[in-house]
Design a protein around this nucleic acid. Structure first.
Lengths: 237, 237
DNA sequence: CGGAACTTTGATGCACCTCAACCCTCGTGG
DNA sequence: CCACGAGGGTTGAGGTGCATCAAAGTTCCG
């Protein structure tokens, strides 16, 4: 099932006609494994294909002020470089965090399918819109929240999105991020990220061993993060 | 000409078939004037229409950590609440900064036109994509740049976007923002915004009198801002 | 012409940064 | 099976960019 998790999530959210489901299933998808830090697309590149995450974890970033600023995370079922469909060259880079598996779909194939089904086109457009709501919340996160809330919010969001594709069990999920990645995502120095995580552990809100994060007290974590998942609701409800 | 500036900008960027131009011109557009701080759409609202800026200045914001975090600015020719087309309720609010004029188009009218012309649908989708590239650069701005670069970058971007719709003359443009707005946009306190602007003035990079900003030394301002307009190129080239 | 909104200034404090080690883990090759 | 090197995590000390608080000055508008 090539675009299975994506179909499932969309199905849950807004429904999919049998025809559209067939169109998605019929798409030619090339499987590819990405190693840790291997790029899916590079800033400045002209892409001819899009990826959909099958397993693993993907991040997008831009270089700003000599730092690698992470702009978004992508979990299974997400399209990390959908923007390449309309940009002559990508405005940012996309890399795998840890090993991951993606499905590659050529722009022309995808455009043909979207032309054949305006409804499906709207569903992909809607996907772009959701990614934008996530970007907006990300801005709030780095611009308005202090370190503790910021990191807490990042973890809440990822957990919530993992849940939408059944990758959250007992408030635990796989997270291959390093503390440097968290620093690059939040705009906080790696030293302070380390101390912030210690504070979250000390308060018994999270455990993080062996690339597995457990939210020991999700409710309190949400409170500290001021996490309002409304902006993701379109995603899972 | 209801959606004139938008058509012009898109025409310059990717071209428009005569048919599509006609479709746009034929859209039923309701003119409306917004007073200073008057909302165009509110977080949590379900919209039935979209706005396009005819004149003035629009901002979107979310409340985060008891602050009004500004997420984006919109200049004439932009669609500030295009996201409402696919979100059951808006994830953020949109207000006028100073007095502005917008054209309102009902969702159903717009959807009919987009269904009639897949090409136009792609053009609006592309518009969403460009807004996302701007959001990503905004993240870099607030997360990675210091106060001076951040404010400088904001001014560069606005100037550049004003230029695309011929609202930049002699490196000057109308900017109805208050220093509080700049603070809400950049995540910097209003006191520090004030001192940062003084520094920019002292360095002879900008003048700002009577709601008119003049970039006295655009080149040096770009350098300080690390402004790379590539992410907007889709917008103007 | 009065008051509200906006801008400016000074003083003080803190959240977070930077630098510089040191430690641990894990994968690799000899 | 151990040596070792690199990547990642942790800790301490000292510094700073910016926040906060408070108040005065200015502009704008009804």
């Amino acid at each position: 099932m090539p675009v299975g998790l994506f179909s499932k999530r969309v199905q849950d959210a807004v429904g999919l006609s049998p025809t559209d489901l067939e169109l998605l299933k019929a798409l030619r998808v090339t499987e590819r494994t990405l190693d840790n830090r291997e790029p899916l697309c590079r800033q400045g590149d002209a892409s001819t294909q899009c990826g959909v995450v099958h397993a693993g974890f993907i991040a997008s970033y831009k270089i700003a002020n000599d730092r690698e600023q992470i702009l978004a995370f992508y979990v299974p079922g997400d399209f990390p470089d959908l923007q390449t469909l309309f940009l002559p060259v990508s405005d940012h880079s996309v890399v795998s965090i840890g090993r991951s598996r993606v499905g590659l779909i050529s722009h022309s194939d995808l455009k043909n399918v979207l032309a054949a089904s305006p409804n499906l086109a709207n569903i992909f457009w809607r996907e772009t819109t959701i990614q934008a709501t996530i970007l907006r919340e990300w801005i709030c996160n780095v611009a308005a929240r202090d370190a503790l809330s910021c990191i807490a919010h990042l973890l809440c969001e990822i957990a919530f999105r993992m849940k939408a594709v059944d990758l959250l069990t007992d408030d635990s999920f796989q997270l291959p991020l390093t503390q440097q990645d968290l620093a690059n995502a939040s705009g906080i120095s790696i030293v302070h990220v380390n101390r912030t995580l210690q504070e979250l552990r000390k308060r018994r809100l999270i455990r993080w061993v062996n690339r597995t994060v457990t939210l020991s007290n999700f409710e309190e974590l949400k409170r500290i993060a001021q996490f309002e998942p409304d902006y993701l609701l379109a995603n899972s409800a």
